Computed example of a mutant assay.
Amino acid sequence: MIQLALPFPAIDPVLFAVGPFAIRWYALAYIAGLLLGWQLSRFIVARGSLWGGTSPIQPVDMDDALFWATFGVILGGRAGYVLFYNLPFFIANPLEIVQVWHGGMSFHGGLAGTIVALVLFARSRKIPIFSLLDVAGVVAPLGLLFGRLANFINGELWGRPADVPWAIVFPTGGDVPRHPSQLYEAALEGVLLFIVMLIAVRCGALKKPGLAAGIFGIGYGLGRIVGEFFREPDPQLGFLMFGSTMGMLLSVPLVLAGIALVVHARRQPTP
């Protein structure tokens, strides 16, 4: 029986190049996510009504927070990939650690790096830490959306073999039709989670510090776990205990931390 599959769209990962200088869709995705998140964060902190009166953060604070968050994403994302996904390779090839243009970023590492950066920034400005993390949780799905779309354009992180009508044969995935798991994750971690976060803000989540950040942790963790059922595991790791993947295992603590934040926040009095 002939199995039908959709062809992979012929999208060049390089938008344009001038000599050795190239602009890649992947880099633009990071930039777009950061800039849109920055603009939305300024909008959120400027609306005192969303905070129950007066916002504890000023829009100008978000300008500097963007700088700190960018370094947290890059350094944490690379460190997370090195430690969690390919440590033996990087021990044998330490110079590859700084060669980020070869690929290899971990969302969980980037999240940890961003949290550390924002906590340090909040302490330096005497801004409530949980309130700043709440804002980050609201805008983060925008970055996830663009990042997953860039994964699809790059033809990387493709899904497991599939016989669904929308299965795609990826250039680097052999001649096997596969789930476009990057698009599944873009829908779950990007679009759906962003809608959930906007609804939470609309319902007053920012009035209880830590609540929005907790909702994000739960939402992303669950969305990532679901997405991992369709995503091909990293070849150097394969399947782990009980058929799980590294993405699943790293998401479980995130869900638990999110639940703890939600419980803590809901116990606080509403201003």
Results as ranks from 00 to 15, higher is better:
residue 29 A to V: 10
residue 153 I to T: 03
residue 46 A to L: 06
residue 122 A to K: 00
residue 179 H to G: 09
residue 140 A to P: 01
residue 20 P to A: 08
residue 138 V to P: 02
residue 120 L to Q: 04
residue 268 Q to A: 14
residue 177 P to Y: 07
residue 16 F to R: 01
residue 174 G to Q: 02
residue 173 G to M: 12
residue 209 P to Y: 10
residue 242 F to C: 04
residue 180 P to W: 05
residue 31 I to R: 06
residue 97 I to K: 02
residue 221 G to R: 00
residue 260 A to G: 15
residue 88 P to Y: 02
residue 177 P to S: 05
residue 218 I to D: 01
residue 179 H to N: 08
residue 199 I to C: 14
residue 86 N to M: 06
residue 112 A to L: 15
residue 103 G to L: 04
residue 159 G to Q: 04
residue 73 V to F: 15
residue 240 L to Y: 13
residue 133 L to N: 02
residue 201 V to L: 09
residue 58 Q to C: 08
residue 87 L to V: 10
residue 213 A to D: 08
residue 148 R to V: 08
residue 103 G to A: 03
residue 39 Q to R: 12
residue 260 A to I: 14
residue 36 L to I: 12
residue 21 F to A: 02
residue 198 L to K: 10
residue 111 L to V: 11
residue 163 D to W: 11
residue 128 P to I: 15
residue 87 L to D: 02
residue 185 E to W: 04
residue 192 L to I: 15
residue 190 G to V: 06
residue 98 V to C: 08
residue 19 G to N: 02
residue 212 A to W: 14
residue 8 F to V: 10
residue 107 F to S: 07
residue 8 F to L: 02
residue 268 Q to K: 15
residue 151 N to Q: 06
residue 128 P to S: 08
residue 190 G to E: 09
residue 170 F to N: 07
residue 262 V to G: 13
residue 114 T to P: 00
residue 146 F to A: 10
residue 172 T to K: 14
residue 100 V to M: 11
residue 119 V to Q: 02
residue 70 T to E: 11
residue 225 I to P: 03
residue 157 L to M: 10
residue 44 I to E: 03
residue 161 P to R: 07
residue 191 V to A: 02
residue 264 H to W: 13
residue 10 A to D: 13
residue 192 L to R: 14
residue 30 Y to E: 03
residue 252 V to Y: 05
residue 74 I to D: 11
residue 127 I to Y: 05
residue 50 L to G: 00
residue 260 A to T: 01
residue 59 P to S: 11
residue 28 L to F: 05
residue 238 G to L: 01
residue 88 P to G: 01
residue 217 G to V: 14
residue 64 D to N: 07
residue 70 T to L: 14
residue 215 I to A: 05
residue 198 L to E: 06
residue 177 P to R: 07
residue 30 Y to G: 02
residue 219 G to C: 11
residue 112 A to F: 12
residue 42 R to F: 13
residue 202 R to M: 05
residue 119 V to K: 14
